[in-house]
Simulated assay, not measured.
Amino acid sequence: MIQFLLYLVTFFIGFLTLCYFQFKRSKNLKPLKNGIMIVFGSGGHTGEMLSLIKKINFKDFKKVYFVKAFSDNVSKDKVEDFLKKNKIEINNEQVEWINIPRSRQVKQSFASSTLTTLSSIIYCFIKVIKIKQIDILLCNGPGLCLPIVVSVLMNKYLMLYRRSKIIFVESWCRVKTLSLTGKILIKFVDKFLVQWEELVQLNPKIEYIGQLI
């Protein structure tokens, strides 16, 4: 069992390394704005993402994909109420909700979380590959976004989504250090944004955007 997990982890690390070098070659491609995908974690992460989407002109996109966990029974209602309350123009036909399994549950062991993460990546990859084009993927910190980001990267470097841009926004509660998800993804995303200026010194790729809440 341990040997099998080591093989899987080695494969995963190798894939991320390949994605990193491919990413450096495709930085200058411009998005076509066919579709935007936005990942909602839960609780505070969803609240921060709502502050972000107020700045998005959804008319620029043909399709809008909202992603949440199967076990999240709150985010969908919260997002729909927010859009209506703030009079954000978006057509119902334009929106598609996608439910995905969480990669890790609270207090889950490392061994079992490795398997559930890989399972979630496979599930997300199948979902993502059916979508015609994701030009922008917007996520803000929860571990839920990890399998989605990896799936978009896999499609991107299999030449299916050549123009996809991934934007990661670090959580407001991260004042001096990056989240584990942020540390994993910083080399692979196109933009890495933070809400506290102190974090800028940690990596030249980090951009400060101010506090969202």
Rank of each mutant, 00 (worst) to 15 (best):
S113C: 07
K176N: 15
W97S: 06
S164T: 13
G143V: 03
L146V: 15
D81K: 14
N140K: 03
V67N: 09
A69K: 02
V150I: 15
T177F: 06
T114G: 03
I167H: 06
S120D: 08
K76F: 09
I100Q: 09
F66L: 03
L115H: 05
K63C: 05
E48M: 07
D60A: 08
D77L: 12
K68Q: 13
E93C: 08
F40R: 00
I121Y: 06
R174M: 03
F58K: 02
T177R: 11
W172R: 13
G141Y: 01
V149W: 05
K59W: 03
L138E: 00
L115D: 06
D77H: 11
L118M: 13
L52H: 04
V175I: 15
V64W: 02
Q94D: 04
I90R: 01
C173E: 12
S109V: 01
N57Y: 02
L115S: 07
D60P: 03
N34I: 05
M37P: 04
F61L: 01
T117F: 09
F40L: 08
L138W: 00
L118F: 11
N155Y: 03
Y161I: 00
K76A: 10
I166N: 10
L50V: 02
Q105M: 10
D72F: 01
F40N: 01
C173Y: 10
K107W: 11
I126E: 09
F66M: 00
K132P: 02
N34W: 02
S113V: 01
I38G: 06
S120Y: 05
N57M: 01
K107A: 12
L52D: 04
G44D: 09
E48Q: 13
I166C: 06
F70G: 07
P142D: 11
I166E: 10
I131Q: 11
Q133M: 12
K62G: 08
K76G: 10
L118G: 09
L137F: 04
L146D: 05
K85Q: 15
N86V: 04
G47Q: 13
T116K: 09
S164D: 07
K68H: 08
D135Q: 11
W172F: 15
V64M: 07
L144Y: 04
K107I: 04
Y65H: 08
P147I: 01
S42E: 01
I98T: 01
Y157I: 00
L180N: 14
L83N: 12
K55D: 13
N73C: 12
V169D: 06
K132V: 05
V79C: 07
I166H: 07
F40D: 01
F61I: 00
I100L: 04
Q94K: 12
N91W: 03
G41M: 04
D72N: 12
I90M: 03
P147G: 07
C124N: 07
D81E: 13
I121E: 06
G41S: 11
L50E: 05
F40T: 00
P142E: 05
H45M: 06
